[in-house]
Design a binder for these strands. Structure first.
Lengths: 395, 395
DNA sequence: TTGTAAGCGTTATCAG
DNA sequence: CTGATAACGCTTACAA
């Protein structure tokens, strides 16, 4: 861990160039204040020594950080296993780069996040999926570092950005109901059932959306009809297999992420279940690859990349500048994208239903648009179409 | 950018607790040296003030960084658009986390990488895809920060990790040749043709692999048969469309990344070209979703996640500890994974060939294993099968 | 067990 | 235009 070969310091350069440290500093930060020839001399000295100003010292002296931290709720290897997190990172990193900030990723692997956050000493923090009422958020508040919350409770004081999970989930449920499905399985986020039961977590909001849709038809999910899994392909596959082994026989599955939905796709294939003929699947996220799966995935699109950009923008424009480190809540819209992984249930169950006869196959399904209850200041990142429901056909 | 409300410092705590700064420091770093009651007093004082030691100051004083930087060759938004980079990040971040390091992502967006690297002041650096003979690597060397190179030239001094791109690419070419293809299009990495022409870049190595395979059948790629594109779905789609518009009519495409291959899939669909019947496609990477595309993608698997882990491990074990900041080259193997996006060419061209009659459809193709020339210390991350060629069928 | 004081490498202030 | 000198916040010999 030693640095071994000591890097040259500003002092060495000053000495070699025969000037003061101040001048050397000027040479790097305000060249115009130096006479061209001294500047040259200093530059040469610095170059010959291979001197480069050290960032830590600089930040200490200037009292200003050049980086922001992204706090992930799980180990980063796990996070990045979900392509959707890559999307988010891409958005956040892009916005940060443009503003000249570099980005730190921090996870709770080595003790609580609150501790981790000041290990990295960032100018500001973007916290993902933190509980609104947990101890962590308090710790972070006390650390006096500006924070913006992502996918957390909207009831929180800090600026935040989230998506309208509930409306999205409801649209997914409505869609399936409209096709005539009655037997569901939902693959919920997180390895365990509601350990804490934060009513404001992403999964709680999505579950509320699914439930409210199903409730309209008098359907109530039993405990067996909800599996929990990490947001990965493997997680989704395992969850479906588990449910199947437990005797659950859905005609439709609602997955809280596309990665998990793809896992279900693969598990179904393993079991010889044809999608969508025997089983309809709808995901969540609409990752870039969703249109290219086999079959193309029906899913709830969320503007993930935009979410990342907004989080950074909010941090940089709001709490980092001004005193008031609150306000600035932003709720982005979701939209159901209908592709080929959903259709009317096969005869075996379709017999007992047939309501809402949108009939003849998934690609014809057009469910009544249910207006999102969220603020709608912004349109989607991916395109200019309004939010809501969209039917995508192969070109 | 101001910090606004000054955070409490160690001095404030000392004052409030009626002790010296040293004691406060001890309270945080060597509690056992303090009498329990003083420790308590300090702790209370610190807590009441909401004091937390500042990482910058600490690093400056200890001369030791707690973070490592990952240097990306392109804007990070671009990088993360490729799911394969997410895989790499997952690997690197996992290894870093375990070792207690946090990770910084740095891109060349604001001036040269060499400058960016000391903006973040990391303990060590992982440089991706840097030219072996470029100026950047020299700059980084001079900055005296330990480096490990990823996907760079093996001829370099620094420790490095890469994969056997050439063997992988050759296997892909052989596979297609074995199926009877004669008309190819390769989608190469990077937005532009060889701006610099580093013979050791990933794309040069892969191109060499493709070429050497094709050369064995006397096929030489014309300039029109090589398109360049960013490693994204969109990039691949555009590239294929461009080539098509230019009149290129391949029966098989060799894409240097799965993301691009999926783009080709989508472009082909747009043009009404059936895959694999009218067009065979082989990708590179074998991202997690590759088995679930439509049709499932034949591709060259590289152990991307492992690559990330190894890079960090090499950095942490080698240059960060010892004086010798060289050696430790690691070349990981690749393996062709045959799925359903490749098959024998359709009649239109197959007529003039038919050699090597592996016949009846891609899923039967078994090409002779060509032993990788790379070191083979390690097996794949994803499973325990040996490297080489593998045929994957739907279960 | 606790305190004093000297760094760590820069930048900022204020003279000259 | 350039130079002393004092921060910046924390660690760490060395003393007491």
């Amino acid at each position: 861990m030693q640095d071994g070969d000591r890097r040259p310091t500003i002092g060495n350069v000053a000495e070699l160039a025969g000037v003061s440290k101040t001048s050397v500093s000027f040479a790097f930060n305000a060249p115009e204040r130096l006479r061209p020839e001294t500047l040259m001399r200093i530059r040469r000295a610095a170059a010959s020594l291979g001197y480069r100003p050290r960032a830590v010292s600089r930040t200490l002296a200037k009292r200003r950080q050049g980086s922001i931290a992204i706090l992930a709720p799980h180990a980063l290897g796990t996070m990045f296993a979900n392509p959707n997190f890559g999307e988010f990172a891409a958005g956040a990193l892009t916005a940060a780069e443009i503003a000249g900030y570099s980005v730190h990723f921090v996870s709770p692997l080595h003790g609580p996040l609150a501790l981790a956050v000041d290990r990295v000493n960032a100018a500001g923090v973007i916290a993902i999926g933190l509980r609104a009422d947990g101890p962590e958020i308090d710790e972070i508040r006390r650390s006096a570092v500006p924070v913006v919350m992502v996918d957390s409770s909207p009831s929180i004081d800090e600026p935040s950005v989230a998506v309208d999970d509930e409306a999205g989930a409801r649209a997914a449920g409505d869609h399936l109901l409209g096709l005539g499905h009655l037997a569901f399985l939902v693959i919920s986020l997180g390895p365990y059932p509601s350990t804490s039961g934060d009513p404001w977590s992403v999964r709680a909001r999505r579950m509320a959306g699914y439930s409210s849709a199903l409730a309209a038809e008098g359907i109530v999910l039993s405990e067996a009809e909800v599996e929990f899994a990490p947001a990965s392909v493997e997680g989704g596959a395992d969850a479906f297999l588990r449910a199947w082994a437990a005797g659950v026989r859905p005609t439709a599955v609602l997955a809280m992420s596309d990665a998990m939905a793809i896992g279900v796709l693969s598990a179904a294939r393993q079991l010889g279940i044809r999608v969508p003929h025997d089983l309809s699947i709808v995901g969540f996220d609409d990752i870039e690859l969703a249109p290219y799966t086999d079959p193309p995935l029906t899913t709830v699109r969320q503007p993930t990349r935009l979410k990342g950009e907004e989080a950074v923008r909010l941090l940089l424009e709001g709490p980092l500048r001004r005193e008031d480190r609150r306000g600035g809540h932003r709720v982005l819209e979701t939209r159901l994208v209908i592709r080929a992984s959903t259709t009317t249930p096969a005869a075996r169950t379709a017999g007992r239903t047939g309501r809402r006869g949108t009939g003849r196959g998934g690609s014809d399904a057009v469910v009544a648009t249910r207006k999102s209850s969220a603020s709608t200041e912004d349109s989607m990142h991916k395109d200019r179409q309004p939010m809501g429901i969209v039917k995508e056909e192969r070109t």
